[in-house]
Design a protein around this nucleic acid. Structure first.
Lengths: 211, 211, 211, 211
DNA sequence: AATGAATGAGAGTTCATTCAT
DNA sequence: GATGAATGAACTCTCATTCAT
């Protein structure tokens, strides 16, 4: 699913075009300069529209950013859901999601940077949104871990905490990669897979490593 | 080690008193309102000093924050080092450090919030500092994990990645607790210990859980 | 005479309907929020028309307001003229007009507020219009006072000044009532009648008070 | 009493100088262009200070204007009080005040314009202040009229209304003069005196006219 | 006749920083 | 060492008006 599809145009084609331009440019500029480092003028200038157009489509700078966060989270989530669908077991689903998240990070550095780096420590409203997204992601992970417990693939445990741990781990690994920019994140996948599976007591952590 | 000791006074007692007042107030205000939400005026007003005094001791707003980040990191590090010293094995040292970090977070919410939340996504200079601190912490963890491998407590593995995972996990768990404010972080210690030890393949992950 | 009749439609019925809607809504919104507190968007939104329609019928925001002021003044004037017509003497005419003005203020708070409060201190063009209206009203009063002098009902005097005084008095009394909103303005009529008649030296000021 | 004295400086001489400059320039500019027609930049430019200085001394544009209104009202009030002091009877006091008000209007056109014209129909907060001032003035007039009743100089009557009438009359006469700018307001004093005294039933309205 | 997307000058306000005292 | 008045660039947001459709 693309970012474009993530928004639902309700107006004329022309109107959507301007809005889209603003939205995409905002994404790029925010990713590059951060929330506070970006001015509405930056977005307007880079999108070759006007301040009036910006405020016609978004009620404030915060509004675009909020919308953007939702869209980015939607993209990641949709990618994961799609990858998960065909996997037979809960554990395989979770492994699949892990891979997709890294691949998405690789493919959409700017998007992911917005969510992991630029969205932290902003205004209460934005911080709230970020935590909501984190919680949403964590719940998805937890749900599958719970299923894995039921399926007998992993021992009974504090899956909420495990989900947080996975999220935090991904966050840190991706963030460090984003900033240092060394190699490809997806290269970390095999080791990360072993580590995370081991952390939840999955018996086959080592075996599938070689696959 | 206290925050106060983390700064090295080189001037007269009176001068240091003013600087200390500014520094501590800055810490409180930054923790409460974040970097961008805090104005130099806020700090000056709350510390009952003056703008001139502020700029006499710190070259800029960013400068205090940078100094502050170092100090906070120093406090956490020192606490961990102290706790580690007496432990016999590398694994025990790492476990000890884990406990200390959670205890420090519990005791100094404001400090830890600065490092984990408010310091993210700021200017390049500040972001650099944050990453340096992360790397410093990660290296400490990694060093002990490496030793644990040598000691045969855990299998040979990508300890750099493991260290990152641990850091990210702690980051996420503490951040969520900071914001939601439910219960005490230290309550998460037992489950977290099992999870993290399992993640590195420590054989005794389950056994010591009961201790 | 109604506000509607005060405008002279020259177009099709449908066109006039849209114009009327805009005009009446503008009246309400201006009365409520004042000239500067009202945006063209406010008027458009409240009238369920469009910006284009607004600028089709009015050349500018100032234009509607100017038109509005004229219409309001016309309503007050027409009411006064009608009431005056049947009175036998100039003095009785003036008394009648006084009553009608208070009654109109009572009945059309919003309209009167526009003229007395919201129209003050605006742009030169609007201020000019307001003063023209004041002068027009003052001249009507003066004309009848002059006639009362001729009729021997009051002594010879500076009737231009007296007319200004009457206008100013009405202005102040109605404005204070508009804002404080206590009781009904028409309750002030008897005392006001005595006061104003006395001010021009009308002999029967006291006598008719009881009628 | 001058405008300058109406403010109480609490800071250093230099500080007060800047504040004074801003304040006086604001007075001039507001008188000339009105509240909405004046921008903070106008004031800053004309006072050769800076925006920072402006906001250092006043919390907002509205704040200066509010302060200004108070100061102007104070000047008028003080002048009237001073003139009143030596008069023997209540009626003479009121007559005196009347003269002083016209003289003040003559001498300080700009100030009076602010109060009578530019301060009308602004934001609720400013409108409130204006009405407060009106009420304050009306009460002063009423108090003396009440005393005149007690002294037997005028018959018992609705003095509150009479006070409003006087205020409204002065307002209108001065406003028309301000805008049309014909002759001197003080020329209207004799006729105005007769008119107003007659309005309250003062027996000697005609007699003293010749003095 | 009617729509509403688009414009862009300009408004009020903030705030890190400087510097004379 | 310490003060706080002064600076001014920069910011977000508003809104009357235009114009292609």
């Amino acid at each position: 699913m693309s970012i474009r599809e993530a928004q639902r145009p309700r107006r004329s084609a022309a109107a959507t075009a301007t809005r889209d331009r603003l939205f995409h440019v905002a994404m790029e500029v925010f990713a590059e300069r951060g929330y506070h480092g970006t001015t509405v003028d930056d977005i307007v200038a880079a999108s070759a529209t006007s301040k009036g157009a910006f405020y016609h489509y978004f009620s404030s700078k915060q509004d675009v950013f909020l919308t953007l966060m939702d869209a980015v989270a939607g993209v990641v989530e949709a990618g994961a859901e799609a990858a998960i669908a065909d996997e037979p077991t809960a554990l395989r689903k979770v492994e699949s999601a892990l891979r997709v998240v890294l691949e998405t990070a690789e493919a959409r550095r700017d998007l992911v940077k917005i969510l992991l780096v630029e969205a932290v420590g902003l205004s209460p409203a934005l911080e709230q949104k970020r935590l909501d997204i984190h919680r949403r992601f964590a719940q998805v992970i937890q749900r599958h871990l719970d299923r894995a417990v039921v399926e007998g693939a992993i021992p009974s445990q504090n899956t909420a905490l495990a989900a947080q741990a996975w999220l935090g781990t991904l966050n840190e690994v991706i963030t460090q990669w984003l900033v240092t920019g060394e190699g490809r994140v997806t290269d970390r996948l095999p080791d990360l897979r072993v580590l995370l599976l081991r952390s939840i007591g999955a018996a086959d952590a080592r075996k599938e490593n070689g696959s």
